[in-house]
């Protein structure tokens, strides 16, 4: 329970909302998260963008990204609020800590492997692994 999870929340705001309403909205949502004990590590408005398909008769929307750190409870509350809010056309939450951890692990493993085989690492770093391929190129 106590473990920290990292979520990426993307939501699309109605493009017809006024500038001040936008800031109020994002502020409201971030206080929802902090009230529930989560922290917002990133809060970014990606801006107006053409939608790939129409959502509620709209062809574009304003994309906003939150990166939330917490236990999961604040996400439930945040999603509930977003569902109720008419200005939010769509939202999606993705848990990213596990994927990032895996990416780190892969990276570490790659580095370890490169260190273990100095000859291979040198070849890969030097000529773009061309020597390792040998005469196989003739096949192509």
């Amino acid at each position: 329970m106590a473990e920290k999870r990292v979520y990426e929340v993307v939501f699309i705001v109605d493009p017809d909302t006024q500038e001040e309403e936008m800031t109020k909205l994002t502020q409201n949502l971030s206080t929802v998260v902090t009230d529930q004990g989560g922290t917002i590590t990133r809060n970014e408005v990606l801006g107006r963008r053409q939608l790939a398909y129409r959502i509620g008769r709209k062809n574009e929307g304003v994309y906003v990204i939150f990166e939330v750190e917490g236990t999961g409870g604040e996400i439930a509350e945040l999603e509930r609020r977003m569902r109720v809010n008419d200005a939010i056309m769509r939202y999606m939450t993705v848990r990213v800590d596990e994927d990032r951890q895996r990416a780190e692990k892969l990276k570490a493993r790659r580095q370890r492997k490169a260190a273990k085989r100095p000859g291979f690492a040198a070849a890969a770093a030097g000529g773009g692994s061309a020597p390792a391929r040998g005469g196989d190129d003739s096949e192509a």
Partner: peptide, 11 residues
């Protein structure tokens, strides 16, 4: 699939 969900890519 995630990108489709938030209308970054078409279904």
């Amino acid at each position: 699939k995630r990108a489709r969900n938030i209308a970054l890519l078409p279904y």
